[in-house]
């Protein structure tokens, strides 16, 4: 072993320091949870809320479909006939008892899909924990939104500012047969305001795919679909023309945007050049 190799071997720990120094300049990845929260995904399933109409009527009609569909059996509903002089819900019946056991709920959102009146949706809250089992059973008074339509804040839940504004759930608009490219209408009544979102790609024929930034699901799926699963107006040559028109319009829009951007930047460059000459002029 020569002396230079020995020195190199002895100083090899500097390589470790180099790595440490490199990591010092990198951005931090740790999320300081009690101080800040991770932003929630738009389809996050959190703690449920029971919605009301804007006139204060409850949306729940006590049909117990949510309890029937729940795979974890965590919902308990009892319906009751509305009192004739002071009805609680616009229907014939209302949910008299509504309880969700959050130590059983797996947040699958099947109740939200089953609900015919959009009474039950899921908020984005997921930071909560209990110190006893009784706290975990949310009764109707805890689930029901307040007069503003916002969910109630319970002491063992960690709500932050503005988080309760997204309490409406995302609903799949699949066909009863399970066809993923089904173009049924998403049943948003639009009557209760909080967190309503436009339907996403593949959810409705009337969506604005440019706005949501998603590729239409049917374009991906149509190659794999049976003929009868494709809507009539999109089949065959008709559909091909329709698709070509759509993509041409999209292409033209992108091109126009690029042109206008280019024009604006060119104008800005010229604008920045002109005052410099004017400033130098007096000197």
């Amino acid at each position: 072993m020569s002396s230079s190799e020995g020195l190199k071997g002895q100083l090899s720990f500097l390589g470790g320091f180099k790595l440490t120094l490199e990591h010092l300049s990198r951005p931090r990845v740790t999320r300081q949870y009690p101080d800040e929260k991770k932003p929630k995904q738009p389809r996050q399933h959190g703690r449920h809320v029971l919605n009301r109409y804007e006139d204060g009527m409850e949306k729940c009609i006590g049909c117990e479909l949510c309890a029937g569909v729940c795979p974890a059996d965590c919902i308990y509903v009892r319906g009751l006939d509305n009192p004739p002089d002071d009805p609680v819900s616009p229907g014939e019946r209302y949910g008299y008892v509504y309880e969700i056991n959050f130590l059983r709920c797996i947040h699958c959102d099947l109740c939200v899909e089953a609900c015919p009146t959009e009474a039950i949706t899921e908020s984005k809250l997921f930071e909560f924990s209990f110190t006893n089992r009784a706290d975990a059973i949310y009764t109707k008074s805890e689930l029901l939104v307040d007069d503003e339509g916002l969910p109630r804040h319970l002491p063992w839940e960690d709500w932050r500012d503005g988080e309760d504004l997204h309490s409406s759930g995302w609903m799949r608009a699949t066909a009863p047969a399970g066809n993923a490219a089904y173009e049924g209408e998403v049943q948003w009544s639009g009557e209760l305001g909080y967190g309503l979102r436009p339907p996403e790609g593949g959810q409705s024929g009337r969506r604005d795919d440019e706005a949501t930034g998603t590729k239409p699901l049917r374009e991906v799926l149509e190659a794999h679909l049976l003929k009868e699963d494709i809507p009539l107006e999109h089949r065959g040559m008709k559909g091909r023309i329709w698709r070509a028109k759509i993509s041409a319009a999209r292409h033209k829009k992108h091109l126009d945007e690029a042109r206008s951007r280019h024009r604006a930047s060119k104008a800005a460059r010229e604008e920045s050049r002109r005052p410099q000459t004017e400033m130098r002029g007096p000197k």
Binding site: Y33, F102, F126, F128, S129, A136
Partner: peptide, 19 residues
């Protein structure tokens, strides 16, 4: 402490730990 969720997110578990 009980942490609900299936599974609980790390933040939920952290909430339980803080509790």
């Amino acid at each position: 402490v009980y942490a609900p969720g299936c599974p609980p997110s790390p933040e939920t578990l952290l909430h339980a730990i803080l509790t």
